Simulated scan of single mutants.
Amino acid sequence: MSTPTVTEVADGVHFVQGKAVNWTILTEGDAFTLVDGGYPGDLDAVLSSIERVGRTLDQLAAVLVTHAHVDHIGSLPRLLDGRDVPVLTSETEARHARRDFLEQATPLQVAAASWRPRVLSWSLHVVAAGGMTKAGVPRATGFGAGPLDVPGHPVPIVTPGHTSGHTCYHLAQAGVLITGDALVTGHATVARTGPQVLAGIFHHDAAANRRSLAQLRSLDGDVLLPGHGAAWHGSYADAVEQALA
């Protein structure tokens, strides 16, 4: 198991960088919210990160999902086994998480791009991390409006494009925005770092994803936590401009 990097970027906001994907832990009192959960093979890393922020799995109050690709929900079935913990995302993405439908790059699409050295090494990691499973999270449900009544109290911002119900989470008081895969700062398949959008192969609707980023420009805060890549510090408007350039 690779040891994840855990950084407290704001009070109670812990950014976790796994080997190929990120997740976030929001602590409040003794309880915490987990935002995303990595690949199936990241289960031990997720548990390690929870321990490193001084919590136990028994203190998990809720799980939030940015989107239901396997690298973001893969550990959840085993993590939540036998636990009555809500799994919340947008109404559309909850259906995706329950696997009423599936929107992610097919093995055929990945194979077609695997002549690129970075894509090939990434695809090998996907297989090793259990990324070929189509298992979902049957308990996933849609959230209500406004700040969520979970530790961290994030405000969901539905940003369709990467998937039909992709959701970012804004923690206004902490000045933090969790962007999932709508806007990232790196990926194993590219050398470039800094705010960017993923390659079209990874999006259900790349054009819609780019349009959705407009919602992020005016939000207050200066810390951006992506699903892939390092945390980014600066205005969200600048991050969007760089991603769309």
Rank of each mutant, 00 (worst) to 15 (best):
T27F: 06
C168P: 06
A174S: 15
G165R: 08
T159A: 15
G165I: 05
T141P: 01
L64R: 01
A97Q: 01
A239H: 03
M1R: 05
V197R: 13
T24P: 02
V240Q: 05
Y39E: 13
G194Q: 00
E91Q: 12
A172N: 04
A113F: 01
A61T: 03
A172Y: 11
L79M: 09
L225M: 07
W232A: 11
A20V: 14
N209M: 13
K134S: 13
A61L: 02
L219A: 12
V223H: 00
T92G: 00
A31S: 15
H69Q: 06
G29F: 14
A188D: 11
A10L: 07
P154M: 09
A112G: 02
A68H: 03
H166M: 08
F202E: 09
A105L: 01
H153D: 13
G82W: 12
A182T: 10
Q109I: 00
S2P: 15
A174V: 05
T24N: 06
A145C: 10
V53N: 03
R139K: 14
D44R: 13
A208P: 01
P40W: 11
V35C: 15
P86Y: 02
L76D: 06
T159Q: 03
A94I: 02
A45Q: 14
G130L: 05
H72A: 12
M1V: 08
P154G: 10
G234K: 06
D181Y: 04
G161Q: 04
P4Q: 05
G221H: 04
S2V: 06
G194Y: 04
D238P: 00
S218L: 08
I73C: 10
G74S: 05
A172H: 11
T27D: 09
A237H: 03
I50L: 07
V184H: 07
L177V: 10
H233E: 12
T141V: 15
P107E: 02
S90H: 03
G82A: 13
A145E: 15
L120T: 04
L79D: 07
L80G: 08
T163P: 06
A243S: 13
I157K: 04
D84W: 05
T5K: 12
V158D: 10
V16D: 09
H204Q: 13
R55F: 10
A135F: 02
L198T: 06
T89R: 01
Q59M: 08
A174G: 05
T33L: 12
T27I: 05
T3A: 15
P86G: 04
L244K: 03
T3L: 11
P154Q: 08
G180T: 11
Q59P: 01
Q196G: 01
G82L: 09
S90A: 07
G131Q: 05
L80D: 08
V63I: 13
H96V: 00
V240M: 08
V21G: 03
V13L: 07
Q104D: 11
A208K: 08
L120A: 13
H204W: 10
H72T: 02
H125L: 14
A129M: 14
V53S: 08
P138N: 12
A45T: 10
G12K: 08
I73V: 15
G221A: 02
S235Y: 07
F15I: 04
V21L: 00
Q104M: 07
A68F: 03
G29N: 13
L213K: 05
D220G: 14
R83W: 03
G161R: 08
W122E: 11
G38W: 05
V127F: 12
D58E: 14
A188P: 00
L60T: 02
P107S: 02
A135G: 11
G186F: 06
I178R: 01
L43I: 14
V70P: 01
A174M: 09
